[in-house]
């Protein structure tokens, strides 16, 4: 594996080469820009959108929807996941409902959500929360249940209360799973917000893509996609950064790579 500066420049060179081929092909094959714009046109669209301040407003809207949806979905997932993991009865009655609900494609639910919650912020937050909810809930349940039997016996042999067993053992033990779930939930929340914006919205990057589609501004749509993936990557690295602080004891990868190079760690 290549590390450090050489690795980074190689990656950039690869991307640059791909863009060059793309550019050359669109020019040589005379592909119309409403089918597939050249990279140069996408960057021009990006620059125009950013310099005029049009994108900034929509970026903030989508970001806000995503973060609120993530907070709502994550809270629900942690609470319900904990209840499911700790009570066989809750699991027996509630879990089938949750799985049935999860089996429905959220994209198909989005139109109803917009009807119920309106064209504003609320419908986007609800949609984001619904999409973000499931992966974190499953991880919470698995994490809380993955506790070693000897550890439980140790706590029980000390006559620890249920609350103590939960806070001193089950919860810290589940944190690696919970953080893995949070990483997924964060990216899913962004997808949920965009889906609801597609159906009906007054602002946001998803709405922007929709309106550009009606004017065949494909270069503009590509520039938004680029922004969306950058937002996704940044939100994900925020969660990863928090995880590294909280889960100081759970970093096997760092042990394998003792020298702290900027080794790429994705998702």
């Amino acid at each position: 594996m290549t590390k450090g500066l050489t690795g980074w420049s190689l990656r950039l060179a690869l991307i640059a080469a791909l863009l060059l081929v793309w550019e050359a092909l669109t020019v040589l094959l005379k592909v119309p820009s409403f089918i597939l714009p050249a990279p140069s046109q996408i960057f021009i669209a990006l620059y125009r959108g950013l310099s005029t301040g049009i994108y900034a407003e929509h970026i903030l809207v989508t970001l806000w929807e995503t973060l609120l949806g993530f907070a709502l979905g994550a809270t629900l997932a942690l609470v319900l996941g904990t209840a499911l993991a700790l009570s066989r009865r809750v699991e027996y009655f509630v879990y089938p409902l949750i799985v049935m609900f999860q089996a429905m494609p959220k994209v198909a639910l989005a139109p109803m959500i917009v009807v119920w919650f309106g064209l504003g912020l609320t419908s986007k937050v609800v949609s984001a929360a619904l999409v973000a909810f499931f992966p974190l809930m499953v991880n919470t349940v698995v994490g809380l249940r993955s506790v070693d039997e000897d550890r439980i016996n140790l706590m029980r042999s000390l006559a620890a209360s249920h609350r103590q067993i939960f806070t001193m053992l089950l919860l810290p033990n589940a944190l690696p799973y919970i953080f893995a779930g949070l990483e997924v939930a964060m990216v899913f929340a962004l997808i949920g917000a965009i889906v609801a914006e597609f159906i009906g919205a007054q602002a946001g990057l998803g709405m922007l893509i929709q309106s550009m589609n009606s004017t065949l501004d494909v270069a503009g749509q590509f520039s938004i996609l680029l922004i969306l993936s950058l937002i996704g990557v940044s939100l994900n690295s925020c969660v990863v950064a928090v995880r590294r602080r909280v889960l100081f004891w759970d970093r096997p990868r760092d042990l394998l790579a003792p020298s702290s190079t900027s080794s790429g760690r994705t998702t």
């Binding site: 070693d148 000897d150 550890r151 016996n153 140790l154 042999s157 001193m168 053992l169 004891w249 759970d250």
Partner: peptide, 10 residues
């Protein structure tokens, strides 16, 4: 109680 494995919390 001392168990067969150390059962420490990481």
């Amino acid at each position: 109680v001392v168990f067969q494995s150390p059962v420490l919390f990481p």
